[in-house]
Design a protein around this nucleic acid. Structure first.
Lengths: 220, 220
DNA sequence: GCGTGTGAACTGGTTCACAGCG
DNA sequence: CGCTGTGAACCAGTTCACACGC
């Protein structure tokens, strides 16, 4: 009953964001068809997804945006505010540190870490930054729940372990390395930007080869 | 024969990266088992994936790292150098502009765009930057193949269309909006960082509920 | 015997078809 | 008659089991 499939969770998170946006625009009701267009899947999938978080829909009318958003928030735990930190303050890490949109996920960045003292001194940010060797201690002290890993590949595994040692329960891994935290129960999810770019190129090649004769027409 | 499933393409791109790294370390041969550990899937999947790009393996010995890398590169089109641009030079876009790792995907960032003249003047980067209204023109002139979309959500769709009008064949979309380029044959792939963070939180909640009694032990 | 290659069974997520309410 | 809810059919991708070559 509590086992929502992962693809469904991904879409529900998107729907959650759309609800937030729609509520801001004053929209009160939304249909599965409209959601389907904005998420990029079929309406049936949307209905199944929403079914996973409990009955919200009014048959014949659609979904109450506010209720739907709250229901997803509650079921997926997106309501409770959590603290997070950024490990590795290079180009990407620095950007993440002040990204500003994480509050939409209920996340507040409360600390940054880097192994270079030089970088810690030159960086200009309102977020407190610490040397890498204090990672575990600060994570535990500040009750940080989630770590954003943006270190070089060589430091990925050790940083992940330090995060786990500090007691984080989730890691969003921006390194190209598959990090494994043996023992501790930590959710790890990876975003490999370079790889995504490669995939775009590969799909290009792929589609270019077979779609030269036949385009996939999909009018919405 | 040319239709490699997308999950397989994603993994092949990762394997491609690993080959590059291993070659740098002097490793000449690798087994499907070792690759499986570093990609995070089973060995059978790895073998199927590699099978998709043609016969490379020496039975009983493993795969020649160099040959494997080249074969993937060739089949997936990762060898040919391509130009790309970054649209939107906020925190994230600015970081992408100088990320430095895109060469691993055969990509060179040759231009940046932003609608704010102020930002264009204050940004310090060796990459040439242009006002947003010149997007299509510059993209065509510089033969830019891929666009990295890092604009605010409100500008996502119009920017994507401008990219398509300029003739890009691929878009890596960092906005939370599903952008559709009707008509043109453009590959769009999305990386929604805020959503990924939400998913981590949701999986946390999910796992926390059901795994409190039973951990998933998976020793490697 | 270890490691690749591959056809057959399986799984779970999506698509289809339709029942039911406003 | 439009829209949600849902059980049945479908299908892609993974897992399993095993044949073959070093």
């Amino acid at each position: 009953m509590a086992g929502i499939p992962e693809p469904s969770i991904e879409r529900l998170c998107r729907i959650h964001g759309l609800c937030h946006e729609m509520a801001g625009c004053g929209t009160e009701v939304v249909s599965s068809r409209e959601l389907s267009e904005r998420v990029g899947v079929t309406a049936e999938v949307i209905r199944k997804d929403i079914g996973n978080v409990g009955d919200v829909g009014r048959v014949g009318l659609g979904y109450a945006v506010k209720t739907l958003g709250e229901r997803i928030e509650e079921k997926l735990g997106l309501g409770t505010e959590r603290s997070a930190c950024v490990v590795g303050l290079g180009r990407l890490g620095g950007a993440l540190l002040e990204y500003g949109h994480f509050s939409l996920a209920g996340i507040r960045i409360v600390a940054g870490f880097d192994s270079s003292i030089n970088r810690l001194e030159t960086i200009r940010t309102p977020v407190p930054v610490y040397p890498a060797h204090e990672l575990s201690v600060v994570v535990r002290r500040e009750a940080i729940a989630i770590g954003l890993l943006a270190v070089p590949a060589t430091a990925a595994q050790s940083s992940a372990e330090a995060l786990a040692a500090g007691g984080v329960c989730g890691i969003l891994n921006f390194t190209p390395v598959v990090v494994g935290v043996s023992g501790a129960r930590v959710v790890v999810r990876s975003v490999d930007i370079v790889n995504e770019l490669k995939v775009v190129v590969a799909l290009l090649e792929q589609h270019g080869r077979q779609d030269l004769t036949q385009a996939d027409e999909r009018s919405g």
